[in-house]
C-alpha cells in the first residue's frame, strides 16, 4: 500500500498543481468581458475603435521592455501580469443611437459575482457617466472594467490581470487605452503615531 502511495505521489502532485493552475486561469478568464455583441453598433456609429491585445501579445510585449531606459522599466511594471487589454469605443453623430439594452449587455456581466463598482461619476449637466469596476478574489485583483457612457459616445475598456486604478490612469493613452477622464486616485494617508 505504501509503495502504491509512493508511486502515485508524483502523479497526485502533478494533478493538484494542474488543478490549481486551471482554477487560476478560470478566475482570470472570468475577468474577461464578452463585448463582441457590441460590434453591431458599428453600423450606426460615425466612428468605431476596436483594440484587442490578447494574453499572448501582452506577454510577448512585456518580454521586450528590457532596456535600462526608465520609460521601458515603467511600462514593464505597468503591464506586468496583464493578460489582455480590450477596448471598444463608438462615437455617434446624434444622441440616442444606442440603446440601454446594449449597455446592459455589458453591465449585466458586472452585477454581483467577483465584480464591484469602485468609481461612479455622473454629470447631470452633460449626461456623462463613467463607472469603474474591479474583479477581485480575496486580495487578488483579476481585472478591471471601465464603462464610459455619454450621449454620443459609448466606450468599454476591459483589462484582464492585476491592474489597479493608479495603473489604469498611467495606461491612459497607451496600449489602446483611451483617456477616460477618471478622477485622480486618492493619496494614501499615513497614520500618525500618537
Amino acid at each position: 500500500m505504501k509503495t502504491l502511495f509512493r508511486n502515485s505521489l508524483p502523479a497526485i502532485t502533478v494533478s493538484v498543481l494542474l488543478l490549481a493552475a486551471t482554477s487560476v486561469t478560470v478566475r482570470a478568464q472570468s475577468a474577461r468581458l464578452q463585448i463582441d455583441q457590441l460590434d453591431s453598433l458599428a453600423n450606426k456609429a460615425s466612428e468605431t475603435v476596436d483594440v484587442k491585445l490578447d494574453e499572448h501579445l501582452m506577454q510577448m510585449t512585456a518580454k521586450f521592455f528590457v532596456s535600462k531606459d526608465p520609460d521601458d522599466a515603467e511600462i514593464r511594471e505597468l503591464i506586468k501580469g496583464v493578460k489582455g487589454i480590450y477596448v471598444k469605443s463608438f462615437t455617434f453623430e446624434k444622441e440616442g443611437e444606442y440603446s440601454p439594452a446594449e449597455i446592459d449587455s455589458v453591465m449585466s456581466q458586472l452585477r454581483g459575482g467577483a465584480w464591484s463598482k469602485i468609481i461612479g461619476v455622473t454629470s447631470k449637466k452633460d449626461g456623462d457617466n463613467v463607472e469603474v469596476y474591479l474583479n477581485t478574489a480575496g486580495d487578488q485583483i483579476n481585472g478591471l472594467a471601465v464603462l464610459s457612457i455619454e450621449p454620443k459616445e459609448f466606450t468599454v475598456v476591459n483589462i484582464v490581470g492585476p491592474i489597479n486604478l493608479e495603473k489604469l490612469v498611467q495606461l491612459e493613452g497607451q496600449f489602446g487605452v483611451p483617456y477616460l477622464n477618471l478622477p485622480p486616485p486618492k493619496p494614501k494617508i499615513e497614520k500618525k503615531n500618537p
Partner: peptide, 20 residues
Amino acid sequence: WSPLVQTLAPKNEEQNYIFV
C-alpha cells in the same frame, strides 16, 4: 491572424485594420 486594431469611420469611408 489576430485582429489587433480596427477603426471605422463610415461617413468618411475610412477604415483601418491591423492583423498580427
